[in-house]
Design a protein around this nucleic acid. Sequence first.
DNA 1: TGATGATTGAATCATGCGTTTGACATCGGC
DNA 2: GCCGATGTCAAACGCATGATTCAATCATCA
Lengths: 231, 231
Amino acid sequence: MRDLTIPESGSKRKLLDAAEQLFADKGFEAVSVRDITQLAKTNVAAVNYHFGSRDALLGLVMMRYMVPINEERLARLESIERKWSGKAVPLEELIDAFVRPLATQVRKSDLSERLFYKLAGRIFAEQGDGMPAQIEDQLRPVIERFTRSFAKALPTVAMEELVWRIHFLAGGMIHLLTHQDLVLRLSSGASGAPTMEATLSRFIRFAAAGLREGTPSDEPVKKGPQATFNF
Amino acid sequence: MRDLTIPESGSKRKLLDAAEQLFADKGFEAVSVRDITQLAKTNVAAVNYHFGSRDALLGLVMMRYMVPINEERLARLESIERKWSGKAVPLEELIDAFVRPLATQVRKSDLSERLFYKLAGRIFAEQGDGMPAQIEDQLRPVIERFTRSFAKALPTVAMEELVWRIHFLAGGMIHLLTHQDLVLRLSSGASGAPTMEATLSRFIRFAAAGLREGTPSDEPVKKGPQATFNF
DNA sequence: TGATGATTGAATCATGCGTTTGACATCGGC
DNA sequence: GCCGATGTCAAACGCATGATTCAATCATCA
């Protein structure tokens, strides 16, 4: 595994800080080496000297964010399963374990809150879209681990169905991270100006209901006039 | 409004076809004018001759896809509301009116199914991220119209809450469109190989449950061991 | 102090980008 | 036959990109 420790000072650190700020703000493709070195007040050659290439710096920035988030996800999941040892884990706690680390890790970051979430969202969103393979390798075991726990919490939901529902959940989370500002704009203020904590809680309730849909503890037919409508 | 009619043949048509195929496959930023003209077997200058600029071509491609989809969305919505005149419209039908046009319009397209959905997803996903303003202008009234209908169907959900839930819904839909292939890969085959029709129906059920969460017709507390957990 | 290796800086490289140019071909109408 | 309108084409323009070169500078330790 590559060294992820970050020097306290010096231009290497300045470059990393500038890079993550710009990547978060403008997107991975839209930021040039010159943008980064200019913000970091270093020479253009510094990026290639310290990191080898722009791509290597990009991968480092992404890994630096994903690794602690994914570690906290797994730690929370294990702690929850220990707490409910053997018994069915409540769905909301599972989803919380998956999304809450985004909010806790943001405070350990030098990035502004807004930029941190945008960066996290971009990393997820551009998954499998020209992203370094190491990022996907980093995420896959986490997804698999959570999928297994979700399956245990929802024994009546077929695996095929569950995989798709988790997919929808991930999409909602990504969109929430990357396009918070768009909601505010398109909704003409109707969305309020909630904290991310509040929005995450909203999201957990939404996603839990979606995951649980059709489950025995749900009532089978009850949702108003839909008799003529088949899904 | 710009002319959206497409010539039957000639290099203008060839350019449009090549452009939408490449944009869908690789993303809007990753495709160069030279890529397009090479696939279309025309000269590099042709794009600027016929469309004025790369950006104008990009806007045309996007509008050509969004306009009919959004028209069908509104038409379906009005037909539904006529059908249930005055009465509460079932949630599933509203969501269906929003997502189903993606599946019906794909057949009128020359793009392969996979590319069409990717293109649609990209247009949504990169919303407000350097996208031409015309696309947002095209989408905003649709969102507002649907939001009003959702509000009527869910009178007990506060407007602020509803706006966010619709946001989560949109995110799930986008992710579903753009990253279908990723699901298949990450889930090691557990997701099956369903048609988009089937996946959309899955999504409608998921999203409806999420939107409806906490609604009176839902039962208030019933979902297993979650007494100690607050949201 | 002087030698050594790490770091910086200005200049430059090759490449790819969107766009423009101007010569050339093709065609319908007078 | 000629004209202007409409396309097409190779070539080039100006610019930005990631990367590299190589001399100058710095820090560290013998």
